[in-house]
Design a protein around this nucleic acid. Structure first.
Lengths: 338, 338
DNA sequence: ATTAGCAGTCACTTAAAAAGAGTGCTAATG
DNA sequence: CATTAGCACTCTTTTTAAGTGACTGCTAAT
């Protein structure tokens, strides 16, 4: 348990460091905060905070910098929850107003907005398509050889894909395919569609065998195996002083580009509103200099994926969390069972 | 008209500079090429090439660097057209094999491949949707309140968008909308759809007025006003020594992000196979340090947009042009009137 | 417990010197 | 007359050294 004074000092250090990106000295702390103590006392306190593992020192004659643990303490205990301005609220509201029909569109709008408002890199991972329950399948013939498959899920997702054939398809074939697929697959998770259709093909030996096979193959390839991932504002990090060396920027962009770390995020179960992973807390050594803040996009109890941002550990957690809480709330309000 | 020897020297300078990114000295030219002349003679020749405006000199005691004009001469006269390896050919072939149905998918695959193979930033601009001729329109009801509009064009494009309604739509309404739209709009360019439908609404005063209005509005917003632009591999430029200062990288990413320069590209008319814009040749001062190489994606006489790459003027034109010629050829072969 | 004050550390800045890479010119050469 | 050896000159880059400044940690006084 930290003394009130230590808390105040830690908080001031985090906030100053987040703002300036320079190690914080006892002197500047004295100037910018009224703590009614001398710089020597601050130094003593800082030494103890360092002992406790909450602060780091780049070198002997530099000021202090929060450690990952220090940020963690800040996020858990000292954070300010209202660090969002009226302008930001208005801006976010205006962006979210657009009543996009598809989840993907909504997700895009949210990620764009998040990146714009936070100036970090935003990310979104859609729900696992394989686990979605089919509520309806429609097939539409485009021209004479292209079939469009549209799948609606109980979550409200709409997924479509095209299948091209080497021979003409007739409208009556489309009709019967429509009937078959809906009869066999309604209510099933997308991951399970192959088996019942194969069984059907074997048992009935209808003319549409090849068509059905192509359709299943294409749905697997284009919809089930494909995870929706969005990233926006990757170049924002170039504005941050910790990335003023191209190598560092490159290593960040590589991590972000590979998207490995995203997979864990969507699986992560959590009761919390907003999740904060500081440094390598989530076990990935490569992420030790970065923090990730996410929330689950849930509307009417339906999981619509995970949305968040990634940036350096020197992150404005108060602001990011305020903004994400607000966006999360708005997403819910906009979509109350309508 | 340049002497053969001057040509050879210019070529060697361009190629060495493209490879090393360092100004080329008379000495290293002597070492790496067998020109059978002394470095002093090379220096004399270089001085003349500089006078002719084909070379630049960063400072008195540095080697020479090709000027924009020098690159231009190289591209027009000295280029090697077969600078593509067997591995590259195989790789490109394997990527293009995937018989994607939609133009957008094809375009994505091509841009990804281009960025991977060239290590520059690749770009693609779809054809102007507004000018596409409608060959068919289909409407599909998804659930009870979402209408999906699918537009096929004579170019073979497939565009779809969703419209959400506040009230239920019946299947019979969908049918009559299908009939009306196809009757009125088949054969028209997308830019012209608003008027005939408005006239129709006024003259007939059917029940579907609001539905039709919503549809037209949404088609305008989501399809006609939206230009398809792809960019891939923007971070590739961070690997190039000319961008080892973050500011330069940022200025490149800003240019690329704004996409202004792309608009001119699609309009550009040209008889040539491959178009090369070196520095500010295309009139944009901001692009003076960059070059753009493009080709028109044309299949069976149909314009499917422009594809290309952007990178520093110090670009491996021989390689880029070889690769783009190959891809262009493949795109044609794969799609011969089938 | 707090603090003034000072020695000590370490990065950063500045200045000067040295090294290195190339050119341009001159004078000699075949 | 084209070519070339050779050297003076220029300009960047590297190296070295000295100096400055920002902090801390400790000690001794309050």
């Amino acid at each position: 348990m930290l003394s009130e004074r230590k808390k105040k000092i830690l908080q001031a250090i985090v906030e100053e460091y987040v703002e300036t990106a320079e190690p914080v000295s006892s002197g500047s702390l004295l100037k910018k905060n009224d703590l009614n103590i001398s710089s020597a006392t601050i130094r003593n306190e800082m030494a103890e905070l360092e002992q406790a593992g909450l602060l780091d020192k780049p070198h002997t004659s530099a000021g202090r910098v929060p450690s990952a643990q220090g940020y963690r303490y800040y996020v858990d205990q000292l954070i300010k929850e209202d660090k969002i301005s009226f302008e930001e609220i208005e801006y976010i509201k205006s962006k979210l107003e657009s009543r996009a029909v598809e989840l993907e569109e909504v997700t895009k709008i949210v990620t764009n907005t998040l990146a714009e408002v936070t100036h970090y890199t935003s990310l979104a991972i859609g729900p696992d398509n394989a686990q979605q329950i089919i509520s309806e399948i429609k097939f539409v013939l485009l021209g004479s050889r292209i079939l469009m498959a549209i799948i609606l899920t109980e979550n409200g997702l709409i997924k479509e894909t095209m299948i091209k054939f080497e021979e003409d398809i007739t409208e009556s074939q489309v009709q019967s395919i429509n009937l078959i697929f809906n009869a066999k697959l309604k209510g099933m998770p997308l991951s399970e569609i192959t088996k019942p259709m194969e069984e059907y093909i074997i048992s009935e030996m209808k003319n549409e065998i090849n068509i059905i096979k192509s359709i299943i193959e294409q749905i697997n390839k284009a919809i089930i195996e494909c995870q929706n991932i969005y990233l926006k504002g990757a170049k924002n990090i170039l504005d941050m002083p910790e990335f003023n060396e191209v190598d560092k920027a490159k290593s960040f962009l590589d991590i972000v580009d590979k998207k490995e770390f995203l997979k864990n995020l969507e699986q992560e179960e959590s009761v919390k509103d907003i999740n904060v992973y500081i440094g390598d807390e989530n076990g990935n050594e490569k992420l030790k200099d970065y923090s990730i803040v996410t929330f689950k996009h849930v509307v009417n109890g339906k999981n619509l994926g995970t949305i968040g941002i990634i940036g350096p550990t020197r992150m404005d957690y108060s602001k990011v969390i305020s903004i994400m809480k607000y966006i999360n709330k708005e997403l819910n309000n906009n979509n109350k069972e309508d």
